[in-house]
Design a protein around this nucleic acid. Structure first.
Length: 504
RNA sequence: GGCCCAUUAGCUCAACUGGCAGAGCAGCUGACUCUUAAUCAGCGUGUUCCGAGUUCGAGUCUCGGAUGGGUCACCA
């Protein structure tokens, strides 16, 4: 461990303190109030004309420091806010004031007691009578100074290097208050989702993350191994197949909020582990799920932001109204001039795309070609909340076909801000059809071993006991957070996003 | 994985065509009893991401590598 010069100076201060019998890391701290409470207490006393100002003991981290000959000011901060300490030689004596000036640095935790007052400039402050170190910071926080403009703390020359911010998230959070706000919004979002679903009779459950057979999505899994059982296990890529087993078990409205893992590329909207909400709703179909989705996001936005509108990448997005609904066939016809219903085979659709001047990848299935067109021509333009519905069957092996049109399934995806946010369908509950689809998928993915959809016999057995008709729904919570907090990278809304390991 | 860009002091950034690596903040020393990006005087603290090469001389040019960002590919 190599210390920098700045760190060496602080280490010397620790030695000096210890030599003087002054513990830089005492075991206990006993603040009587948060900084916000202390400020409010003073303001109430002041309003009542109370002559004796409140006495308090406060704890926090030093964020600014201004020391004069016989007087020093500093701001301390806790999670409730910030407050100024005034340290005067009159109250403390010369020895104590010098001890403060010599030993305390930005970033240190301090406990201080005294009386709440207003300074001559009118700032509510603690007239400090006693203080001691709670925890000495050896490494200086990577921010220089801050100021308060209209009640907002503005840090000057703060930490901005994304790599350091993500790898040392603790430093990022300590120094950038707006980053802390993202994660408060994140907690508020999951709380609001739970409130919403709980109040509609949904039961929150937990299903296995370690699975002997993965499924529910087309993605490459992470593989791990159970030593004693001598068994390979997969980290789940979705919750779907377990949650739907619960419908068979008469838990007819269930949801889970948890982590999914996909062994694929990382990008501004993909992290190898991400948080997903899925719910399954017996006796509902994809149309009812659409309505509930609108309602749910309206509620979440209102709870988290206090309004239904959010700004994302400079564009205003409104969750207040009904979502635009675009039928997949019509949407693609309008965008590309291709009517997918007129091109029923892989080769026919590929040719139609070439005729329109598009450059489809060769030998793709019809469903994959359609999916590619959605990504290129529709998704980027769906800024306002939009449902795209009625998908091709071959890319939707767990969705139920439309009555009278077996090539199309009752599925929708929700897009907001040009990103896919959620995916839902009328769930396939016919065990014979499901078995046929698994076999079909197995064949389709023969060449790509890793993405192949394994046959899940236990899931089929469950379904044979009888699964109620139901609507299912999945949504990426991280992407929702990006929308609500106006962040263009998924890494901004994940506390510890995955980065490549670095040799030290 | 391909391509493009970036990496310089603790943080944020400079350094024209190759010519002694330097600012602000913080830090150190001193002054200062109401400051608040405190002020004033003084002090530059460095493996210029790493490794080779070209050159009298490389932060700068060439090659290889690392990490990050962007983009494309991938991604139901």
């Amino acid at each position: 461990m190599e210390y920098t010069d700045l760190e060496k100076i602080r280490l010397q201060k620790i030695e000096k303190m210890r030599a003087a019998g002054d513990e830089p890391y005492p075991t206990r701290s006993n603040p009587t109030h948060t900084l916000k409470q202390a400020t409010e207490l003073f303001k109430e006393a002041e309003a009542k004309g109370d002559a004796s100002p409140p006495e308090v003991t406060l704890a926090g981290r030093i964020r600014s420091l201004r020391a004069m000959g016989k007087l020093a000011f500093c701001h301390i901060e806790d999670s409730s806010g910030r407050l100024q300490l005034m340290l005067r030689v009159n109250e403390l004596g010369e020895e104590a004031l010098n001890r403060f000036k010599e030993n305390f640095d930005l970033g240190d935790y301090i406990e201080a007691s005294g009386v709440m007052i207003r300074t001559r400039t009118g700032e509510v402050s603690l007239q400090t009578k006693d203080f001691h170190m709670l925890a000495k910071a050896i490494t200086p926080l990577p921010a220089a100074k801050d100021e308060v403009i209209d009640g907002e703390v503005v840090r000057h020359a703060t930490l901005t290097d994304p790599e350091v911010r993500y790898r040392q998230r603790y430093a990022d959070l300590a120094v950038n208050p707006d980053v802390r706000e993202i994660f408060r919004a994140r907690a508020a979002t999951t709380r609001a989702l739970r409130d919403f679903l709980d109040s509609r009779g949904f039961l929150e459950v937990e299903t296995p993350i370690l699975q002997p057979i993965y499924g529910g999505a087309a993605a490459k899994p992470f593989v791990t191994h159970h030593n004693q059982l001598k068994q390979d296990l997969y980290l789940r890529i979705s919750f779907e197949l377990y949650l739907k087993r619960l419908l068979v078990g008469m838990l007819d409205r269930v949801y889970e909020i948890g982590r999914d893992f996909r062994n694929e590329g990382v990008s501004f909207k993909h992290n190898p582990e991400f948080t997903q909400l899925e719910f399954y709703w017996a006796y509902a179909d994809y149309l009812k799920v659409m309505d509930l989705t609108e309602e749910m996001l309206r509620y979440v936005s209102q709870e988290v932001l206090g309004k239904t509108k959010t700004t994302f990448g400079g564009q205003e997005i409104d969750f207040g109204g009904s979502w635009r609904r675009v039928e997949l066939r019509q949407g693609l016809l309008d965008a590309t001039g291709i009517d997918i219903d007129q091109h029923r085979s892989d080769a026919a659709l590929e040719k139609a795309m070439r005729d329109q001047g598009l450059k489809p990848k060769p030998n793709q299935s019809r469903g994959k070609l359609i999916d590619a067109m959605i990504g290129d021509f529709l998704e980027p333009n769906f800024i306002q909340p939009t449902f795209l519905y009625n998908y091709p069957r071959d890319i939707s092996p767990l969705a139920k076909s439309k009555p009278g049109n077996p090539a199309v399934v009752e599925r929708f995806e929700g897009f907001v801000g040009g990103m896919e946010l959620c995916n839902a369908f009328t769930e396939l509950n016919d065990p014979l059809d499901q078995e046929a689809r698994f076999i079909e998928m197995g064949r389709a993915y023969e060449d790509e071993d890793e993405e192949r959809h394994p046959m899940d016999d236990d899931y089929l057995r469950a379904m044979r006991y009888g699964m109620p008709p139901n609507g299912g729904f999945g949504m990426g919570i991280d992407r929702l957070l990006m929308l609500l907090t106006d962040r263009r990278s998924i890494r901004e809304v994940i506390l510890f996003p995955h980065l490549r390991e670095r040799e030290e």
